[in-house]
């Protein structure tokens, strides 16, 4: 049965970026930063593509919220193989409730079977949107989706989806990363899944994929046109660097290390 899946593509700073706070403590220094699709969202796009391939076709709709810059991330997802892109045009601060609200309205319009989101974005690190979305839609939620096989396994090399959908799409079985091990849950459909690191290794976009993505249309909305309050309920009043650790020393050998740990740090 063909399936329709909604995924997200938040624009975030490259995870290797050196993030610095500006002199006023009001934000980060933007200069010289590179931007990418949120890595957890990219894992979500990959999983959606694998599910569609396994279930005999379907659609993957990708959503991003922000200024026109997010077109870059939408095109990235389209180049990977997503079939449709939606841009929610918004400038300024954005909280998780607004994001979940926009996704809820888009899901009510698009009617996908499933939504796969990154468990968190690597800028805010809040880890909330999937859960808000599931509650407001009345859907099940399966957070921190992972798998038992490693990223070096045969299943990964052959790009098998880790999420297991029942043939009639009535349930989805998800392996979750929980404290103390891996938990397997069965959820009713429709479901919001949020991805953890080891769900899959996202593919590179092919050259034809990149060419094709350039000409695909991008549908535009705003929070207001979707009937969602765009005012942020979370105000960041200050940003600062974490307290630095006192500079350490290099020791020449294990004997010196043991001595320091015993006499100075009193850690042994």
């Amino acid at each position: 049965m063909p399936i329709k899946i909604l995924v997200t593509a938040k624009r975030v700073e490259d995870y290797e970026s050196k993030i610095k706070v500006n002199a006023q403590g009001t934000g980060i220094v933007q200069e010289g930063l590179k931007y990418k699709i949120n890595p957890f969202d990219e894992i979500g796009v990959e999983e959606a593509l694998r599910l569609v391939a396994k279930h005999g076709g379907g659609e993957v709709v990708v959503v991003s919220i922000g200024t026109k810059d997010v077109h870059e991330q939408l095109r990235h997802a389209l180049a990977m193989g997503a079939t449709k892109a939606i841009w929610v045009n918004h400038t300024g601060p954005l909280d998780q409730m607004t994001v979940a609200g926009c996704l809820q309205k888009l899901i009510e319009k698009e009617k996908p079977h499933l939504a796969i989101l990154g468990k968190q974005s690597i800028d805010d690190d809040q880890n909330q949107v999937g859960q808000y979305l599931a509650e407001w839609l009345g859907w099940s939620q399966a957070t921190f989706a992972s798998k038992e096989e490693s990223l070096e396994s045969e299943a990964e090399k052959t790009k098998q989806p880790a999420l297991k959908l029942a043939a009639d799409l009535s349930t989805i079985t998800v392996v979750r990363e929980v404290d103390g091990g891996l938990e397997t849950v069965e959820c009713t459909m429709p479901c919001v899944v949020t991805t953890d690191l080891r769900l899959n290794q996202p593919r590179y976009a092919s050259l034809p994929g990149i060419m094709k993505a350039k000409s695909k249309p991008i549908e535009e909305h705003t929070p207001a046109s979707l009937g969602v309050d765009g005012a942020s309920k979370i105000a960041v009043t200050k940003m600062e660097l974490p307290p630095a650790r006192k500079a350490g020393i290099k020791v020449p050998d294990v004997a010196a290390l043991v001595d320091k740990l015993k006499t100075e740090a009193k850690a042994l």
């Binding site: 105000a235 960041v236 940003m239």
Partner: peptide, 20 residues
């Protein structure tokens, strides 16, 4: 009342005020 919380993998500590 405000909270501090880490952003960008702890590279930044933000002070936040929630208004709900």
């Amino acid at each position: 009342l405000q909270f501090t919380r880490p952003m960008w993998a702890g590279a930044v500590i933000a002070t936040v005020k929630l208004s709900t």
